[in-house]
Design a protein around this nucleic acid. Sequence first.
RNA 1: GCGGGCGUGGCGGAAUUGGCAGACGCGCCGGACUUAGGAUCCGGUGGCUUACCCGUGCAGGUUCAACUCCUGUCGCCCGCACCA
Length: 800
Amino acid sequence: MTYDFKTIEPKWQKIWDEKKAFSAEDKSDKPKFYALVEFPYPSGAGMHVGHIKAYSGLEVVSRKRRMQGYNVLFPIGFDAFGLPTENYAIKTGIHPRKVTDKNIAHFTEQLKQVGFSFDWDRVIDTTDESYYKWTQWIFRKMFDAGLAFRDTALVNYCPSCKVVLSNEDSQGGKCDVCHSDVIQKSKDVWYLRITKYADRLIDGLENVEASASIKQQQVNWIGRSTGAFVNFSISGTDEKLKIYTTRPDTLYGVTFMVMAPEHPLIEKYADRIKNIDDVNAYKAECAKKTEFERTQLVKTKTGVKLEGLCAINPVTKKEVPIYIADYVMMGYGTGAIMAVPAHDQRDFEFAKTFGIDIVQVIKGGDIEKEAFTESGEMINSGFLSGLTTKEESIAKMTAYLEENGIGEAGVQYKMKDWAFNRQRYWGEPIPIIHCKYCGMVGVPYEELPLRLPDVENFEPGTDGESPLAKIPEFVNCKCPKCGRAARRETDTMPQWAGSSWYFLRFIDPHNENALADREKLDYFMPVDWYNGGMEHVTRHVIYSRFWHKFLYDIGVVPCDEPYKKRTAQGLILGPDGEKMSKSRGNVVDPLDVISEHGADVLRTYVLFMGDYTMSAPWSDSSVRGCRRFIERVWGLLFMQKGKGSTEKLESSFHKTVKKVTNDIEQMKFNTAIASMMSLVNEIYETGSLTTDELGTFCRILSPFAPHISEEIWERIGGRGLCSLAQWPEYDESKTVDSTVTVAVQVSGKMKGTIQLPKGCDKDAALAAAKRDEKIASIIEGHDIIKEIFVPDRIVNIVIK
RNA sequence: GCGGGCGUGGCGGAAUUGGCAGACGCGCCGGACUUAGGAUCCGGUGGCUUACCCGUGCAGGUUCAACUCCUGUCGCCCGCACCA
């Protein structure tokens, strides 16, 4: 009798839905467990197998914890603002609201077909005005706190999408949405001062449970470095050229200075620079380069000397030339460096190209060939000469700089402030009003949400202007402060806004008076376990930790860190071992798998295919293996029900319950499933099992394959839903065998095994080993040098 | 260049953290049942010159014992990258 998943799976999905089986309680005496998965962007293409794997991990943990008596909050929602929907709207003329609603409905239906135990009463949609009201509210709070500000700066700009991108959205010089080359453009844009939280974002990781790579990637992204700022006088002026260096100890080796081509001092002293035409030509050349060309394709150093401007080395008092070169970035440090060619490879290459002096100040290496970047004894360095540790030299020089007012210790970060706006329609309107008289004024809190107006035309303006700028009714308003005519901000927030606090809204999704009720936040926060993609570790995770720390500072949330534990699932690759992509044609549609094999098979397979945290290729034939497993489980229902089980099978049940219980918590889903497969094989060999045993099996299988578990549970007269039944306990004493197989080695080589009673002592074990015919014949005639015994494991007889 | 990780049968992957390498699944081989099998069930399956011996990318080392620890080396994947 084959398993009819096509009727059984929808049957239970309907029952779970009607009974609201997986709703979390707002208050409960049970311990709480908040499991969070990254809510999807509801794209028109629908669900991807990647979603299934990403959600199945904590789905299994949540289902198990529920059965163990936890009040589990396992929510889902939709991160629906974003460019793809808007681009689709531009192409088809269908309003993004309609597209989004349709996609969400489609996605919801698909998610339900997998049987995920989400709390469907708490679904949120970031594009719903009752949600983005609070996104805007948080922005306003940040504006009030001085954390949201406008600045004119060089920004990453995507000419194709016509939007300003954050650093995080333009990694590798490519637009994150359309992958075209990003250019640098000077523009007046919104920023969030995330750098103010840089130290806390690093230090807070100490209290987060996460793999080394998850933590390290964030630390590297923030990129904290310590060093010093040094002011170099510019000869003949009162001007100081301020630089940042991590190696103030090498100050005596400075033989030239380099400024970024965009450095403001160039314009200020244009009339003193004799070769200003060359300089401007070089600047123009740099401006044309894309970020990619400027950073990725460089082989040789280029630059121009500023004729007529010189800096003075504050310790040697010697004049050193100043260059501009595009290997120095305006966006890091002060946009200018002191160059020490003997001890920095980039400076070395530049000095070689331009024939500049190289002065060695640390002993070691061969500075004819390359810069010596290690530490050693200081030479040619005045009061530092003779010191041998970098730390000491840096400390002494920094102290000198501070005493003489030349410089000071300083910290720099690779992470920049977060460029926080899009010149697009489909995003949260930024709740700010520009008044000629009062400056920037926040939209009053009581007027939030500031609704997105209806428009006909979603095309962005050609000059990087938001479509909202074309709607006079939206733009023209009154200043909330002085009442005079004013203009509304027309930029919208970037996609990351809504996801920066969504986990808080799940706790109280319908609250109209606060982003969430404080008592409920106190109860559910922090998120106990957050699983998502590795690709979000340096963006969404950092962004949301930043927002959360801000909300903590203003007293809105009860904890500093939002996530207690963060894990990441590995990718599912295509059957060819390559990353799945439409262009490669190796994409697997999860709905195809459901219609061919059922949701339980799909769920089991994505967790069985390998280590959850590692990527693994899809294999259709391996899916069939899971299909066979599910069918064999169904077969248990028609197997003879023994009155009493065999002792061996009983022990196997206890062992399996133990293994599954432990493996789930460690995300070792593959081995948990393997052990259940083994148990099923053993039941088939035994030929019968008790109804109780079948009930136990249903319950441990339930987190993985909940539909078939419910059906069998019902047919054997289980009470209530299997999904909410009590998780089975195991008896530790029944998981250990009375006799064990002990390996026997001779001189470290495996020669055979012997059966021994558990806990057998060394003498008895050795005696038994020597009685073994084969062992006896090997050791015969040899001296025994040593005898090693590991209880219940191994006997090793070392002979000469 | 920096940071993180990975190399185990024909394939995906296990291995209680130094103690029987290859669990479980796929594939393959054989058998049963069949008009039939891409269904199901049962058995086998690392290699080999088969009582032996060799096997966890490669070369060494530590140890009674190494996939596991150490040194060196090669290859692959991911993230960041002229960050001063």
